[in-house]
């Protein structure tokens, strides 16, 4: 399709790390959709029914998980700048280095 195939590719990524981030992000969704696990009054905490304080607890947990996932995806797929023409990536070194967690599984030019 093109004479410059590398131009079209996504920057390389460490798929394992991306999967870890995916798991962290899916935890709150799963936990909160299982309504039966928390739809109860007892035990109360400071007068608050379990149903209420448990969901409040997930606000904080989700924030922490999302921030962790953010740090992970930055490491898993570092940004690779484009040339001013937007037709190639600038730095092939940056593209191949994804930290010390093993070789990137994405394509390296």
């Amino acid at each position: 399709m093109s004479t410059t195939p590398h131009r079209h590719k996504a920057p390389p990524a460490n798929k394992g790390l991306l999967a870890v981030a995916g798991v962290l992000l899916s935890l709150p969704i799963i936990a909160l959709l299982l309504v039966g696990t928390y739809a109860k009054d007892e035990p109360r905490l400071g007068g608050f029914p379990f149903f209420i304080w448990y969901q409040f607890l997930w606000v904080a947990i989700t924030s922490a998980l999302t921030y962790t996932a953010y740090r992970i995806v930055l490491k898993a797929r570092p940004h690779v700048p484009m040339t001013p023409e937007g037709d190639a990536f600038l730095d092939s070194e940056a593209a191949s280095g994804t930290g010390d967690d093993g070789a990137p599984e994405g394509e390296v030019r």
């Binding site: 131009r7 023409e85 037709d87």
Partner: peptide, 28 residues
């Protein structure tokens, strides 16, 4: 669009003209 577009960040150039696909220009 091309796959690389989905990972662009601030500082990466805007595609100038959609009709002239960027892949048609000569790469550096």
């Amino acid at each position: 669009t091309v796959p690389a577009d989905y990972f662009a960040d601030a500082g990466d150039p805007r595609v100038q003209k959609l009709e002239v696909g960027p892949h048609e220009t000569t790469p550096s």
